[in-house]
């Protein structure tokens, strides 16, 4: 029993009674469309992705790293629309490249989360028994430690242990990999529980019993037969987790234990901001607002997806 099952938000879809039979995806799309904020947010999100990835066409990475110490801490002007930072780098260019890393961290951390969460949830739910107890105890243990504390401890644990990496001709600080790993490795428990619950409910269904009777292997049953039926809650949780991952990256980097320069992220651009609250508010204002907008639009889209794909579930 947990509060998660508490009836708090009653969004019972009222479609599909009189209308002609619709395919699943058509029905989902109809439901998603009804969520106006989710539609608006999809556009905002698209704009933010265009800003960060399309902006790279206008500003090169060299522009983002070019420094001129004589032009430090300049307020926004036509030349530098977002102002300059402590060594005279253009903040607009850095928010573009920092945004790429922030969004990349959000997405890849969730991939780690989904892979670990689905595997553990599936094994736990499907096999049950002592394996289930053990895995669920570990899941519970991780859920019991307040996330930010665990993340900071792990950030310290891995710091300096991963070398810099080169991808597509760009150098990524090893700390990016660390952040992706630790966010992924601390956020899977919730997903694992959801997947486990779905597996528990589905494994006694007739079609599974039939598959088992025909000698289908366990792995095949788990991943070919049961998993496709649990996609909806996974997609919803994963979408909302992207927002969570971006916020957590920002928190860790803000506290100075996350992604290290020269790689910029929206979070580490704010690291020293407390020193400049007054004299250089543009240092923290632009990256901060970009984080807010990104997280906000992902949350709305996630909410819309929940209504569309998984109408029975409730917000936490």
């Amino acid at each position: 029993m947990s509060v998660l099952d508490t009836p708090v938000d009653a969004k019972i879809p009222d479609i599909g009674l009189e209308s002609p039979p619709l395919s699943l995806s058509e029905m989902a799309w109809r439901r998603f469309r009804r969520h106006k904020l989710a539609i608006a947010s999809s556009f905002l999100l698209l704009f933010l992705i265009l800003f960060t990835f399309g902006g790279a066409l206008i500003y090169s990475e060299a522009d983002a790293n070019f420094n001129d110490t004589t032009k430090r801490l300049q307020a926004p002007t036509a030349e530098h629309p977002f102002g300059t930072d402590t060594i005279g780098r253009d903040i607009l260019a850095r928010t573009i490249y920092g945004g790429q890393i922030s969004i990349l961290i959000g997405l890849t951390a969730v991939i780690v989360q989904v892979v670990v969460g689905v595997i553990i949830g599936a094994i736990s739910g499907y096999y049950g028994g002592w394996l289930d107890s053990l895995l669920m105890r570990i899941t519970e243990a991780i859920l019991t430690i307040p996330t930010l504390f665990l993340l900071l401890v792990m950030a310290k644990f891995f710091s300096g242990k991963v070398p810099d990496l080169n991808f597509f001709g760009r150098t990524f600080s090893g700390s990016v990999v660390v952040i992706i790993l630790i966010i992924g490795l601390t956020s899977w428990p919730r997903l694992a529980r959801i997947v486990r619950a779905e597996f528990l409910a589905l494994k006694e269904n007739d079609f599974i019993l039939a598959a088992r009777a025909t000698g289908t292997s366990n792995t095949q049953i788990m991943f070919k037969h049961i998993l496709p039926n649990t996609v909806a809650p996974i997609v919803v949780t994963a979408t909302l987790s992207v927002a969570g991952a971006i916020i957590f990256e920002a928190y860790i980097s803000f506290l100075g234990m996350g992604v290290q320069p020269p790689t910029a992220t929206w979070g580490n651009m704010i690291t020293g901001a407390t020193t400049y609250i007054e004299y250089a508010p543009w240092l923290w204002f632009f990256p901060g607002v970009l984080i807010l907008l990104t997280v906000l639009s992902i949350n709305f889209v996630g909410d819309g997806l929940r209504d569309a794909l998984d109408p029975r579930s409730r917000p936490e």
């Binding site: 920002a250 803000f254 407390t274 609250i277 807010l292 997280v295 949350n299």
Partner: peptide, 25 residues
């Protein structure tokens, strides 16, 4: 409803920095 999402998505340092900038500075 809208504000609840803004609040939920707001990194605490942003609201803190904004409130310091506004009410203090």
């Amino acid at each position: 409803t809208t504000l609840s999402f803004v609040g939920f998505s707001m990194p605490i340092f942003l609201i803190a920095l904004l409130s310091i900038y506004f009410f203090s500075v």
